[in-house]
Design a binder for these strands. Structure first.
Lengths: 212, 212, 212, 212
DNA sequence: AATGAATGAGTATTCATTCAT
DNA sequence: TATGAATGAATACTCATTCAT
């Protein structure tokens, strides 16, 4: 009962179990689809009992909601890590674009699960709201960063002054989303090559080309 | 494809049932989700018996596959009708872009069903191929038309000669897809306004701006 | 499709199935208890599939509610049949009392099921009401008959004039119920002997004793 | 049975827990039904851990058996206390009848739990025997007291000499049980009014009426 | 072709009980 | 003695599909 210097190694497995369960849910849903990913299967894959599944997650729906919220967080962390802390606008822009290309495969890999979960989740107003808010935060954070970078570049004179900043920001999001969408159906679009070219054409050129 | 001299006498009732079934399947899947849209419910909604359902469609999976193939066809027909037969490149380009904006709401409205069906269908190689081929045809047809129009415009001197035709074609598809994708989650993106603006910025300006 | 002189032997099995299901439910609940009487078991006992169970009854709760409503009906029919159509008050009173003694074993035999069903049913207002109404109807019908018989006997001078008719009616119901209740716990009270003696002491003597 | 010189020092907390658990079990079973009253819920309601539940009671079945045995004891204590130690037969008879009317609401209030527990318990011969013995003791004790009182009254000349003592004893038990039984289904019978009237008619009058 | 009753495999969820701490 | 996380057997109910009429 004394909580002083106990190292609490015993509590860690709980987090570990939680992680294993989320991972198992993702794996089985990606492989077999949401409905075919049974709670029995997930428990077995995560090497826990079904009771434990339900000690950690209220229901299948909640489990998969968590799966997605976590995926969003992880994607954001990966982008942040990749962009780094460059302050020069040109460098930072490059970092942002590279980061997008780099996360792209992971995003598309998780898309099948994401969409199926969305289809189920979106019947429940509360879950839909939570998932949507998480997604919106992610869009907003990236858009904010890009916007700031473009404006800084304009002030410093290294980007075109007549740049339609909002247009570029919206366009970039749309192009990224478009490639994600396409990759759902078409495995040929799942690597980042097409995305890289499109970003070059639609974003980089419009920003840097003034320097000609 | 020509619908002219088909005799259609006593067969129409059968076709009508088929149509009612497909419609019922779409409606219930959109409202309740793929799994919750039961064959019983679809039969009731279409005012046919369950036996009749299975006389027209081999299985639930096949029924929904047909649902989507038909949706693709209808979308294509709508685009074709809207573009019309203008031959002047500028006019035709305008027609193409307007058509995209115009089909957009219908496409997003059917997206929920589309994605759920895809999630189920894509486990079966044969069904996945059929669905994917239909989709690819659609992309190819539109891309072809756009490509021809742009090249014609270049030849006639009304579009910039240094236009990256392939880049524009790919970019346009990506932007359209991106808005479709975004609309899945965000009802604020479901009208065509954002799409219209993005097409203006990213496509029209780049093509016409030489005229300045 | 012609409904004219078809003997409809084919429809009868449906009613037969329903009867078999109700019977199976009663038997298994009496033997194993409400919870232990599983829908699988009931289906097997009734020699129908589980799906058929649910085609006939909405839920386990509804199935057992029907079980009880039917039991009430059958008990009433048995009493009516036993009482017959005697019009002489003394004869009719004898018939009524004999009938009670005679139904008693069947009533107590079904009591275990009855009480367990009541415990479950009574959480749902709608089901409770239906079951309660059926029960009340039964009490009311028997009480009415007894009341009429006693009053007729008074008019005809063969029963004591100072008879507390309402008191006797209420008392008889209470005594019958009391023996039913006791029999729940005590198998020694499950035959009708104790009841017969009690009715003699508490009812017959008070009515006929004037003749002394 | 004498509760006088028990030392009760440090044991009280344990007894208190036991009491809280039994109370919690009764409350939740009355509110939600036997099956819906989970051991988790009972532990929470009693503010003990689930482990503690199992330190005090072997199983859910045993816990509820104890619940009922205790309820019987309490009812008997209440009757004894109410009857008091009057020695005059008329006074004592009044006390007995009043006591029955007085315990009646408490008995009916506990009936729901009682019957559900019985339904479960009665599958196990050993538990059934213990419960049945407790019940029989209670009937026997009350019957004995009543019998003695009636006989004393006859000897002292204040009750009719031709009184069918056994008949009255059995009848009284039956009437009391009958009202308990009726109250299970019909809340209008849950107060003691009907019982009081019935006892008046069926018992008091027959005993005292000689005095006319 | 049309019907709809019958089928039974399949699944999320619950909960009494155990046991390491 | 107390705790509460872990267990897994058990069960009501669903629904795609079939087939006798």
């Amino acid at each position: 009962m004394s909580t002083s210097e106990a190292p609490r190694t015993a509590r860690e497995p709980a987090d570990d179990k939680r992680r294993r369960i989320l991972e198992a849910a993702r794996v089985l849903c990606a492989r077999d689809g949401y409905e075919a990913a049974t709670m029995d299967g997930i428990a077995a894959e995560a090497r826990v009992s079904k009771g434990t599944l339900y000690n950690h997650f209220e229901s299948k729906e909640q489990l998969f909601l968590c799966t997605q919220l976590q995926a969003y967080e992880e994607a954001q962390e990966r982008v942040d890590a990749r962009v780094g802390d460059a302050t020069d606008p040109r460098e930072r822009l490059e970092g942002l674009l590279d980061a997008l290309v780099e996360v792209f495969p992971a995003v598309t890999a998780g898309m099948s699960v994401n969409l199926q979960v969305w289809a189920v989740i979106s019947r429940s107003a509360e879950a839909r709201t939570r998932m949507y808010e998480a997604l919106r935060r992610q869009y907003a954070a990236s858009a904010e960063d890009l916007r700031d970078t473009l404006r800084a570049g304009q002030r410093e004179g290294c980007f075109r002054a007549d740049l339609d900043v909002e247009g570029v920001v919206a366009g970039l999001a749309a192009v990224f989303d478009g490639f994600v969408y396409r990759a759902i159906f078409d495995p040929d679009h799942a690597d980042g090559e097409g995305l890289r070219r499109a970003l070059d054409v639609l974003v980089r050129q419009r920003i840097v080309e003034q320097e000609r």
